[in-house]
Design a binder for these strands. Structure first.
Length: 108
DNA sequence: ACTTTGACTTCGG
DNA sequence: TCCGAAGCCAAAG
């Protein structure tokens, strides 16, 4: 869950990827539970494999909104992973000063 | 103890 | 690309 906490703004990661990064391969669902139990985590930066929003109704809209606020671009209904997926390999150093994409766009 | 249920993944058609 | 099935893990019923 430290992994989730350190997810930089403007990036996203998938449940499964986080699980692997944390050393629990295949425990995507447990990541979900952590997100629900532990308040204060950047839950909106966690998406399904391939960048799909996995929440329902209002919450999905909320997540999209928050991500867009951080400059995350969408390709159709899912996040543009090519650009915003977080690469856990480089976690060790000052990686959380990652370039926050300035692709931001305003919409009514 | 057994079955159901998710904010999931991956693979094959 | 878009489903459906099969895997998977832990908590709830």
């Amino acid at each position: 869950m430290r992994c989730i906490r350190d997810l930089p703004a403007g990036t996203v990661s998938s449940y499964g990827a986080i699980a692997r990064a944390a050393g629990w391969p295949g425990a995507a669902r447990q990541v979900v539970r952590v997100l629900q139990q532990v308040p204060g985590l950047p839950w909106h930066r966690v998406v399904g494999a391939g960048g799909a929003i996995k929440l329902g109704g209002e919450n999905a809209a909320e997540q999209r909104f928050r991500l867009r606020m951080e400059g995350v671009a969408f390709r159709g209904a899912r996040v543009d992973m090519k650009r915003h997926e977080f690469h856990w390999k480089q976690l060790s150093v000052a990686s959380f000063k990652l370039p926050v994409p300035r692709t931001r766009s305003r919409r009514p």
